[in-house]
Amino acid sequence: MFSTLRYVNQPALSSAAKNFMKNGVAKRGMSIAALNGFEGKHFISIDQLSNEELRGLLDLSKKYRDTYGKASTVDPITAPKPLTGQSVSMIFQKRSTRTRVSTETGMTLLGGQSLFLGPSDIQLGVNESMRDTALVLSRFNSLVLARVFSHNDVLELSKHATVPVINALSDLHHPLQTLADLMALEDHFGDVKGKTLAWVGDGNNVLHDLMLGGAKLGMNIRVATPEGYEANEGILETTKKLAAENGTEDVFLTTVASEAVKGSDVVVTDTWVSMGQEEEYEQRVKEFDGYQVNANLMGQANPGAVFLHCLPRHREEVSDEVFYSPQSLVFPEAENRMWTVMAVMAAQLGKL
């Protein structure tokens, strides 16, 4: 018997959030219907989604949480199993806690099966090409999820696979994380349109999709990165275009953390040293001096501002005082990784 899930460190919902969620339930069927054309599509980056598809995935994620999560009265054993008979192969070039556990557990809740394929489990990149791997796995599985180093690898998989591919992380994009982040923000604030999101840290894959998704939902984007650690220029330009299309401010860029945080409603950071960058640790920590999200920095944000971090975290990135505070949405954010990957898989298979 599965136990129902419980949030950890979940701040109380504002009245605006409660109203947004109440109205959202009423409109959810219409927004989820926008995913009817998503069947068979790859999920590679947030900018490939239409605004309607992004809205649909967020609302489907909330529907699954209502069905299988902490507030549900449905027995997980007898709950709907729309992915019965389906399977996902999970290619992991990089280790993970949240991605693996959320996908395996979420697929089980939906009635399907997942297969973990680590670096020593298959021939990928050793005796077998990405193209051949894609073609073989497509014969066995309904979906292919890939957590890789190079974005070119996930593009190669999606080019040759005959089943939908999910980018579970590459060096350029992390779209599943953005869905979880946006869901956490809507749970807290309600409608996030007009809210200001500040990024403090490395201009990396997590920032890339969060910028894109935030702009699509009408959020103002402010980014602080040290010199030499700026976000990808092409993705910045796409974000600016989306900001203009959705009536938000132009993207604000700075090298001073406090300048980005001032007037923000959300402060986000991530690891400064990703997997594969361990030899750069000392240099990076030195160059990110002044970027720790602590009480002083959070104090420069708007009253009621919240904090996000996709985990795993290190104390040089964020102080315990902030990380474990009522301002932190880190653990609800982490839980949302399951509801959102469930939504993506179901939508790709047309099993809503």
Score class of each variant (00 low, 15 high):
K63N: 06
N23M: 03
Q123D: 04
D132M: 13
L169C: 14
L60V: 12
E233A: 12
V318A: 15
G276H: 03
E104G: 15
V88G: 14
R6F: 01
W272Y: 04
L179F: 14
S72T: 09
R98T: 05
S150A: 14
L83N: 13
N246Q: 13
A26M: 08
G218D: 10
R65C: 06
S158D: 03
R6K: 10
V206D: 01
A12H: 03
K193V: 01
R131C: 06
T73R: 12
R100D: 06
E233P: 00
D202Q: 05
P226C: 13
G214L: 04
A146V: 00
L308S: 13
S325R: 08
L197W: 09
A79H: 12
V318W: 09
D289A: 15
V251A: 14
V322G: 10
L83S: 15
F116P: 02
R55S: 12
D47S: 13
R315W: 11
Q93N: 10
A346F: 04
A168L: 04
F189E: 05
K241T: 06
N167Y: 07
P226G: 10
Q277Y: 13
G263Y: 07
A184Y: 02
V154Y: 02
F43P: 02
P80V: 06
D265G: 04
R337Q: 08
T254V: 01
V261T: 08
K216G: 09
G201R: 04
F43M: 11
S120R: 00
A12F: 07
N232L: 11
E333H: 15
E233L: 08
V101N: 09
L145C: 10
R315M: 02
L110I: 00
N294A: 13
A26C: 01
N232T: 11
S45N: 09
D47A: 08
N141M: 08
R55K: 11
S325C: 04
N302Y: 09
D75Q: 09
N302I: 15
F288D: 08
A295V: 04
K351N: 07
N232R: 11
M219D: 10
A231C: 08
N167E: 01
R222H: 12
L54D: 09
V223Q: 11
Q93F: 10
V163H: 04
V261K: 11
S45M: 14
F331T: 10
K216H: 08
A180Y: 09
G37D: 13
A146R: 05
L137D: 00
T269F: 05
S274N: 14
P76I: 09
R100L: 12
D187H: 08
T271Q: 00
N246F: 01
A260C: 10
T103L: 15
N204R: 05
T238W: 01
F116C: 01
D187N: 14
S50R: 02
K241C: 05
R337L: 07
A26N: 03
D153G: 01
E186L: 06
H42D: 09
D66C: 00
V268L: 10
N294G: 13
V341N: 13
K159P: 00
A243W: 01
R98S: 00
K351P: 05
N127W: 00
D132E: 14
T99E: 01
M211K: 07
V192C: 10
A334G: 02
V273F: 07
L179M: 12
F323E: 03
N294R: 02
H160G: 00
F307E: 00
G350L: 14
L176K: 04
M1T: 06
